[in-house]
């Protein structure tokens, strides 16, 4: 059932994380693990890509890794 997933991959959830602190794509994927959202790996990648394209966050390099972030 849908209620089995305790985490939802939504634009609002991603936005809240990126306002809090800069994150890499890997950081974000850890927040929306497939076992918690009930989505497949492909769905997770596709949905997260669409959300990030829409949010169009700022980017900066931290420790040689690309991080995304948003300001309010």
């Amino acid at each position: 059932t849908p209620s089995a997933s305790d985490v939802q991959l939504t634009e609002e959830a991603v936005r809240r994380y990126l306002i809090r602190k800069p994150m890499t794509t890997k950081d974000l994927l850890k927040k929306f693990q497939t076992k918690r959202t009930g989505l497949s790996s492909d769905q997770t990648v596709n949905v997260l890509a669409q959300i990030l394209k829409k949010l169009n966050p700022e980017r900066k390099n931290i420790n040689d890794k690309m991080h995304f972030y948003l300001t309010e």
């Binding site: 794509t25 994927l29 790996s41 997260l48 890509a49 980017r59």
Partner: peptide, 20 residues
């Protein structure tokens, strides 16, 4: 597994890099 996470991150990075 961590390798699956790496593959997902690589796929996502590639998708975003082709866009931005």
């Amino acid at each position: 597994s961590s390798s699956e996470a790496d593959e997902m991150a690589a796929a996502l990075d590639a998708e975003l890099n082709s866009f931005m």
